[in-house]
Deep mutational scan, measured.
Amino acid sequence: MQRVNMIMAESPGLITICLLGYLLSAECTVFLDHENANKILNRPKRYNSGKLEEFVQGNLERECMEEKCSFEEAREVFENTERTTEFWKQYVDGDQCESNPCLNGGSCKDDINSYECWCPFGFEGKNCELDVTCNIKNGRCEQFCKNSADNKVVCSCTEGYRLAENQKSCEPAVPFPCGRVSVSQTSKLTRAETVFPDVDYVNSTEAETILDNITQSTQSFNDFTRVVGGEDAKPGQFPWQVVLNGKVDAFCGGSIVNEKWIVTAAHCVETGVKITVVAGEHNIEETEHTEQKRNVIRIIPHHNYNAAINKYNHDIALLELDEPLVLNSYVTPICIADKEYTNIFLKFGSGYVSGWGRVFHKGRSALVLQYLRVPLVDRATCLRSTKFTIYNNMFCAGFHEGGRDSCQGDSGGPHVTEVEGTSFLTGIISWGEECAMKGKYGIYTKVSRYVNWIKEKTKLT
């Protein structure tokens, strides 16, 4: 034993070699072989497995989906700052455009905790909710729209109204504003409101030439003092309507412009014939205590009207009353817009006519005020429907199939267009061939041609 100890002390290297040989010859039971080890760690190889990531292109799944990435790591994937920024906006807080917040056709661009709407022409605001041009839906104005110097929408209202708090709607500024039905039992019968379409306001006024200088022999019209197929109006439903009495009662109609003036057809009036105007009328054979009678003290036909040349060209006249009318729910003026808007309103496509005229061709006159909704007829169809001249200051309205029309005794009465609950004068009943005849239409004086003249002559002093 002493000898062994001496050998170990003198030859430590020998001992180490012996131990190493023993270990190498022993069977290893701690580690699995290569094949079995792979069965336990069965993990798919990654895209760049075996390579240094710093030297390969980034992978979106590896960089940002398996674990949260930084902007720089995302930049490695896209290799483009702009594309990385677009991805980053949604990656950080989701897609803010998912709810489609942009209105009126706006395009949404996502941002971090926010979004941006790219608005089409005519709109602005956070969600493109603000109209900035009158060309689109009248700028959301209830009545009139004008573009300011910086191309912003400025709404306005006709006389007797003021802008509401929203700067879009119009509200009454006087007790009985024009064009409004205020009798409670008839307010439910107000005709369907007309909503502004998209309009090209630059070209809204037709490029028409008034044929002022045409000389033409007097034409022989049949029954051209021209509501057939209409309905009984309720008291106060058309408070701007008046009836004219002269040699015979209810020979023509008219509309209240203001307390002192009536507008009617020029062919209705004769110099030297006494005319009485009755406002607030409903049943011409009954006294309903809503009527107001006034005498006409002055007749002003349009300066281009000449019955000797043509009885229905420039067929418009103004009547001055001896005493002002007292405005109330049964006696209310009709609204008159400017030339541009009167023309736009007419193009809405349908209007209402009213009167006490004959209820059928050569038949009896109506006792109760009649009204009828009539569609506008395109000019080409209008011209083809008659052998008589249709001037540019006239328009056609009615039904091709016949059966409904204005008729004798309705002449001078109103053709009105309702705009968001307020009625505007767009025409004056003038003439036609018979009444409600198939293929024939009622012919009306186009008020847009005469609004400046009306307003100039009827100013209240």
Rank of each mutant, 00 (worst) to 15 (best):
R404T: 12
G21F: 14
Q96P: 06
K39H: 11
H400P: 12
W240K: 00
G349A: 11
G402C: 12
V4H: 13
Y341F: 15
H361W: 05
G402K: 13
G272T: 09
E286D: 07
T190N: 07
N127G: 11
T417V: 13
S148C: 06
W431F: 10
C407I: 07
E434K: 13
A307I: 09
H302R: 02
W240E: 00
C117V: 01
G421D: 12
K457P: 01
K51R: 07
I15H: 02
E456N: 06
D93S: 14
T190Y: 08
V153R: 11
F71R: 15
G105T: 11
W88V: 14
K45Y: 03
T426P: 00
E401Q: 13
S220Q: 11
C335Q: 01
K457R: 13
L319H: 01
N258S: 05
I454P: 01
Q370C: 09
R83S: 14
G13Y: 08
H303D: 12
S204R: 07
A173F: 08
A308I: 04
C141W: 01
R3C: 08
N313G: 05
G13S: 10
Q90H: 09
G230R: 09
L367D: 11
G105N: 05
R180E: 02
K455P: 01
S114C: 15
G402V: 07
V183H: 07
H361V: 15
L19M: 08
E72H: 15
E53Q: 04
T386W: 13
S184D: 11
N151M: 11
C117H: 02
G357Q: 14
E340R: 14
A307R: 11
R364P: 14
F123K: 06
K438E: 15
C407K: 04
C134D: 02
I344S: 14
F251C: 06
S49T: 11
R83W: 04
E320T: 01
F123W: 09
C178V: 00
E73W: 04
W356A: 07
N203P: 07
V331M: 00
P44Y: 09
T458Q: 02
C28D: 01
V368L: 10
I7D: 03
G403E: 11
G363K: 14
R226S: 05
N147I: 05
G427T: 00
L376Q: 10
G229V: 05
G253P: 04
P101D: 05
F395E: 02
P12M: 11
Y441E: 01
V326P: 01
E61Q: 12
L211W: 13
T332R: 14
W356I: 12
T381Y: 09
S423G: 09
K347I: 03
E456F: 04
F238D: 01
N213P: 07
T218W: 10
T426Q: 01
N36I: 04
C407R: 05
F399C: 13
E193N: 11
P301D: 03
K234R: 09
V183A: 08
E35T: 11
Q408F: 09
L319D: 01
H267W: 02
Y444S: 01
Y330E: 05
T29H: 09
W431P: 07
G105A: 14
T422S: 05
V242P: 00
K260V: 03
N5G: 13
E72L: 15
I256P: 00
G363R: 04
D150L: 09
C128F: 02
E259S: 06
N135R: 10
C145H: 01
E10V: 10
R75M: 07
R379L: 15
G236I: 06
K146R: 10
R43D: 14
N151F: 05
A337H: 00
H361K: 14
Y441D: 00
Q167V: 06
L60Y: 14
R404G: 14
C28R: 00
T276V: 08
G50K: 14
E61C: 04
N138T: 10
P375G: 14
D315I: 01
E76C: 15
L383K: 05
C145K: 01
C97I: 04
E129K: 10
T186L: 06
D212L: 06
I262Q: 00
W453I: 01
K68Y: 13
N393Q: 08
K188H: 04
